[in-house]
């Protein structure tokens, strides 16, 4: 009787080793390589983006492109009959103007909110504030642009008595509201990653909560907070639809915050539709795309290094 059971178990075991186990291993190998390909996808697409943008811009980059003209000339006449000029200085300045304008508002509010959520308020308010921030982040950029045109534009004209409602000021406010959620959520992560022992040590020395925050938490979370701001800047530089609708399409160096401008992103969005495929104008627009890509890539790279540093300590 006993022998039979053991025989049966032996048979099952050898069956498992002979038939089931190899199948199991084979399936594991196949899935592992599929999963590996999936893991590779992000790298492939990143390289692909650079490759295809450079490919389309290349004929222009390798022939009449001059970095001096591109960066220092303010004359952007891509379809002029007399003499075509591709000076993108005004576009770079336009992007810088709305980015700086938005950050003046977004950095204090964003970092302030992050500090408040992380260090001062209770858990219930924190939950509510986080949902609110998520709501703010979920509003699509075209709806922000719509608000800029339909609400902010008449407000600036009627209440502030400015002749043009679509300008740096308008775009800066919209962009600030769009980048605040990112600054808050990354900033809050950075503050939360400061170990509680730091807080306890400072408080046991008699520091008030405010002193703890200013003297201990902010210096300790410095890298993460800078990364949060940088990512907010990246968001503002790369934003397209809202800026396209809010800035007022004027390729010129702004002389006040109520001047209309044109950003790099808006130029690509506005002109690509009319540029014939493969024309020099089309290639210039890809060159602008390439500069945007390089700007955002460097911002992301630097903030990644900063965030990594701040995690290491934890």
């Amino acid at each position: 009787m006993m022998g039979k059971v053991i025989e049966e178990e032996k048979r099952q075991l050898s069956d498992y080793i002979k038939h089931y186990r190899p199948k199991q291993i084979l399936r594991d190998r196949i899935m592992e390589s599929i999963i590996f390909l999936g893991g590779l996808s992000a790298v492939i697409f990143t390289i692909g983006i650079f490759l295809f943008v450079i490919k389309e811009a290349w004929p222009f980059l390798s022939s009449r492109f001059s970095l001096m003209e591109f960066l220092t000339n303010i004359e952007w006449y891509p379809v002029s009959n007399v003499s075509v000029r591709y000076g993108a200085k005004a576009l770079f300045v336009g992007t810088a103007a709305v980015t700086i304008g938005s950050m003046v508002l977004a950095i204090p509010v964003g970092i302030g909110t992050a500090i408040f959520i992380s260090e001062f308020c209770g858990p219930k308010f924190k939950e509510v504030a986080k949902i609110l921030i998520e709501l703010l982040a979920s509003i699509p950029s075209v709806v922000w642009g719509f608000i800029a045109v339909m609400v902010m534009n008449p407000f600036i004209i009627n209440v502030l008595h400015e002749p043009v409602g679509l300008n740096v000021f308008n775009a800066s406010i919209i962009l600030a509201l769009m980048s605040i959620p990112m600054i808050v959520s990354i900033g809050e992560d950075a503050l939360r990653s400061v170990p509680d022992t730091y807080r306890e040590a400072a408080e046991s020395l008699g520091a008030t909560r405010l002193e703890v925050v200013i003297r201990v938490i902010i210096p300790a979370a410095k890298n993460g907070l800078i990364a949060a701001i940088l990512l907010g800047v990246g968001r503002a530089v790369g934003e397209t639809m809202a800026v396209l609708m809010a800035t007022g399409h004027s390729v010129a160096i702004p002389d006040s915050i109520f001047s209309p401008v044109r950003t790099l992103t808006a130029t690509v969005a506005a002109e690509m539709g009319e540029a014939p495929k493969g024309s020099e104008h089309y290639q210039t627009l890809f060159t602008i795309g390439l500069s945007l890509l390089l700007i955002t890539f460097s911002i992301n790279f630097i903030s990644d290094i900063l965030l990594r540093k701040s995690w290491k300590r934890k």
Partner: peptide, 10 residues
């Protein structure tokens, strides 16, 4: 972090 307009170009 790639701007959406660059995705469009890609």
């Amino acid at each position: 972090g790639v701007p959406s307009i660059v995705y469009s170009l890609f």
